[in-house]
Simulated assay, not measured.
Amino acid sequence: MKKSKKQNIIIAAVAITIVSAIISYNFSVEQTKQKGLQFGIELEQIQEDVKELQTKFYSEKTKWEEGDISKEDLIKYYDEHLKKFKEIISRYDTLDPPELFKSSVELLKLSSEKQLESDSEFIDWIKTGNNAAKVRSDAQLQESLEYEMLGLVEFYSAKTGIKNYDEPEEFQAPQSGLTKKVLEITETKKMQCDNEFKNQDGEFESDKMEVEWFNCVNEAEKWKIEHLP
């Protein structure tokens, strides 16, 4: 075979290989984009379902307060509410988020779990009139809102920072806002520790209270270290 003919065959083979690689690459990129799009749709639906469930949760309480439904009907509805909420929360585990969004999903799931705990304590308050349950419910609701805010900050930081789905190593998410929010939440957690374990004079009424306060503050610091960017 002549040398020029061999060269043409080699060039043609290389060209075919390059074209195949480009097609394969573009297909991979498109698949990644579709995966990200599907993930976004599914996550948005979960958050919408949580919001809708919570709106209904409080609207039923209003109906009871206005005498439109009985306490028994309210409690029956709330029992179903908890079941539905658990089902919605389980859907976070079925998501397949791109790597950059995994932390935001974890935080949003944690927010919903705290909301569920808050609802459970709220229902206990409705059933028993135990004010301690109402206090716990309010505290857990605050935690839920803080986790949700942090999750949304991480989500939109990742979303606005991504230029190419196929080049995650080039991604640099904005960090200043996220750092500030983590520090704010940490301080809120520490204040909750003070409120729970110190008296009005800022002192401990027992050694046990001091130990529990110390552990509480350590947990807040641990959370900060785990979530700081």
Rank of each mutant, 00 (worst) to 15 (best):
Q175Y: 05
S90D: 08
L150G: 04
D96A: 10
L116A: 04
L116D: 02
D93N: 10
E106Q: 09
S176Q: 13
A139M: 05
K159T: 04
P97E: 12
E117D: 09
A132L: 09
L150Y: 11
S118N: 09
K127F: 06
F85D: 07
P97C: 12
E169D: 12
S176H: 04
N131D: 09
G151T: 06
L100F: 01
L108E: 08
L145C: 02
E146W: 15
S111R: 06
K109Q: 12
Y77T: 03
E170R: 12
A132I: 02
L152I: 14
P98M: 08
S118C: 03
K83H: 00
A173I: 12
G151A: 07
F171N: 14
E113S: 10
D96P: 03
R91K: 12
A139C: 01
E170D: 13
S104D: 08
S104W: 09
D93E: 11
L108D: 11
P98R: 11
L82Y: 05
A132D: 13
E113Y: 03
S137I: 05
E170N: 14
A158R: 13
Q172P: 02
L108K: 10
P97K: 11
S157L: 11
L116F: 07
E169H: 05
G161H: 07
D79M: 08
Y77Q: 08
K127S: 07
S157K: 11
L100I: 07
Q140F: 15
W125C: 00
A173W: 13
D166P: 04
Y147V: 02
Y77H: 11
I123G: 00
K83V: 07
L100V: 04
L82D: 03
K109E: 07
D124P: 00
D96C: 08
L141T: 07
M149I: 03
P174Q: 14
Y147W: 12
G151Q: 08
S157V: 03
S157A: 13
T94W: 00
D124R: 11
N130I: 03
Y165E: 15
S104R: 07
L145P: 00
E99Q: 06
K127I: 05
I89E: 08
K114F: 15
P98F: 06
E148K: 13
F155I: 05
K102F: 01
E143V: 00
A133L: 11
Y165P: 09
D119I: 01
V153I: 15
F155V: 03
K127Q: 09
E154S: 05
L82W: 05
D119Y: 06
L100E: 14
K134P: 00
G129I: 04
N130P: 03
S112F: 05
P174M: 14
L141I: 03
